[in-house]
Amino acid sequence: MEPNRPTRLPAAGIHEIAARLGPIFWLAVIWLAMVLFAAVTAGYWPVPPPDRMDWAQLGAAPGAPLTPAGTPSAENPQAGGAAHWLGTDTMGRDMVARLIFGARVSLAVSICSPAIGFLVGGLLGCLAGYYRGRLDAGIVATMDVILAFPGLVLLLVIRFYLGASLTNLILILGFLTIPAFSRVARAKTLGLTELEFVQAARLTGAGHLSILVREILPNVVIPLAVYALLVAAFMIMAEGALSFLGLGVPPPTASWGGMIAEGREALDTAPHVSLIPAGVMFLTVLALNLIGDGLRSLLEGRAHP
């Protein structure tokens, strides 16, 4: 019961932890692993290329057969598989292909952007919480100014000035997560510096750098990483919203938000064009939220909700 070092994973066996997280958690992990696998192997799937338009099959229902007609390069029409398993979008492009290539965008954003926020925001937060004083006040004030703009509005505007590309998108989204990460890291660090083992380290004459690296960072990294999962879920939604407004990755690159937007006009005739990517996005966001929430309860030693 004497917690010298807090927020380490409980010293229970792997099996016990696995059981405590519950089956829903593991279903979420499996779904995420599948999405990741699909995104990595997207080029090798037996489906038509994501930008090939099948003019005879505009907005075709799931399971529609592939037709060679209208394909711009008809040299080998069967190369892309046997059927449009999830149908085609309003421009006759294969849904499966666009979904798995769209997963690349979503995952790139949800991995890289939080990573930027994690590194920069985490570091700033730790420094602010550890050194306090003017440095702290300055960092907090800067973050307050960033937070003074409603997130999505700032996103739209920066995106407007910087122009459209996946790299820009990742950088902007990453920049916007810095305040949130720094707040979490700062709060954790503030709590830690009060604790005995940090005080003890200081008394034994350890330098600031050594205390930060050895005592503070290890204890901040894990909760911050769990927080990053929740941010990643939010990033997918934000990228989707931008693409939905036509301000995300430029076409014809497939992205889930863009797919949902394209199907908007055909909701009455071909609802699957919007609803399938919407469902995939929902499940992915939900999976990230479930995993983040499960790990957080585990860290905090609470019972699973």
Binding site: G257, R264, A278, V285
Partner: peptide, 11 residues
Amino acid sequence: LSIPSFVMALL
């Protein structure tokens, strides 16, 4: 809470 607002609007 895992449903983006634009998806909810679409629904």
